[in-house]
């Protein structure tokens, strides 16, 4: 038997709080409070994961699960001005049936999980044995960018697909009649905001870059760093009223930065294949610079894509925006 854990009480309290916050977020009447409680929930989950020796995951949950998702929720609430509920709610009988069956599923699942001994070693020895060939010192980064780099490549593709899907959705809206896409009322304007931004933006950029760099040695990495950079991107977009920069020239540049991560990732993978090793098989000697190159470009892309997901509309040439603002029912 292992000695009693001094943190047990903390664990119990944390778990209970997480559950209560989850329920509170979902059952909260006010939508805005819901979003805030959800963000709080994410931060506490991150805390629990730090407790479970998963600092990378905790960082990702705090930055992306709580931060980005929360920002997206708030931005959507601002746009739609409250929730729209289905006219007819799910009948009580159905809800009861669902509750019973989900409860049964959870009870059996919980019992089964308790009864199942965790696999003894997992993949710990497999990772440990290959760390010296991975090119980095931090095992999670080694898994993400070397051992299972293919998963990570596809993950970046998922985010890119999301941007394309969001832009496809944006294309369907008839802007002549619909509300303008940007976020009036949250614009960060005026001298104080300007000074604040001048201070905060470089700091955020620095933190993001540091997170990417440190990923090779300790918790941190492209996704967490990218999320921080995205915060900088969102802030600077808010300074313009939630719009993309007006110059049409930014279009190819913007699209280029969105796909940069996938392009560099794929390019390095194919280069490795041509060099003779096989796709994504980095030569051990160059593994570290290659991984850093991929991390940097993926972080930039993640920042750009998350910003694009937050803004939720395609950048438009300046002339067209001006036209739209001037006349609402032209043509």
């Amino acid at each position: 038997m292992s000695p009693p854990d001094p943190y047990l009480l903390l664990d119990l309290g944390l778990a209970a709080t997480i559950l209560v916050l989850a329920l509170a977020a979902l059952r909260q009447r006010d939508s805005f409070t819901m979003a805030v409680v959800f963000i709080l929930f994410g931060l506490l989950v991150a805390l629990a994961w730090v407790r479970l020796d998963a600092p990378d995951v905790a960082l990702a949950e705090a930055a992306i699960g709580a931060g980005v998702t929360g920002a997206l929720l708030l931005r959507t609430l601002r746009h739609v001005g409250g929730e729209r509920r289905d006219p007819a709610p799910v009948p009580r009988v159905v809800a009861g049936m669902l509750g019973l069956s989900v409860a049964g599923f959870a009870t059996l699942g919980g019992l089964a999980l308790m009864a199942t001994p965790r696999h003894g070693t997992g993949l710990i020895p497999a990772v440990a044995a290959r760390m010296d060939q991975s090119g980095v010192e931090h095992p999670v980064t080694a898994v993400l960018l070397n051992f299972r780099a293919y998963d990570t490549l596809l993950e970046v593709v998922v985010v890119l697909a999301a941007v394309m899907a969001v832009w496809a959705i944006d294309r369907t809206i008839d802007r002549a009649a619909a509300p303008l896409p940007y976020l009036p009322g949250v614009a960060l304007r005026g001298p104080i905001a300007g000074a604040y931004l001048r201070l905060v933006l470089p700091a955020l950029a620095l933190i993001g870059a540091y997170l990417v760099w440190i990923g090779a040695y300790s918790p941190g990495g492209a996704f967490q760093g990218g999320a921080v950079l995205a915060a900088a991107g969102v802030l600077s977009a808010l300074a313009r009223g939630g719009r993309w920069p007006r110059t049409a020239a930014t279009m190819p540049l913007l699209r280029g930065s969105l796909v940069l991560g996938v392009v560099v990732f794929t390019g390095v993978g194919i280069w490795a294949a041509v060099a003779g090793g096989g796709v994504l098989h980095y030569p051990p000697a160059q593994a570290k610079p290659l991984i850093l190159l991929i991390e940097a470009s993926v972080a930039l892309s993640i920042a750009a894509t998350l910003t694009a997901l937050f803004l939720g509309h395609m950048p438009q040439p300046a002339a067209r925006i001006a036209l739209r603002k001037g006349t609402t029912n032209d043509t």
């Binding site: 019992l111 089964a112 308790m114 009864a115 001994p117 965790r118 696999h119 003894g120 070693t121 710990i124």
Partner: peptide, 15 residues
């Protein structure tokens, strides 16, 4: 299977 493994069994051999 759950009965066989006895709930709240000790975890497998740790590393």
């Amino acid at each position: 299977q759950i009965a066989e493994h006895a709930p709240f069994a000790a975890a497998g051999p740790d590393l």
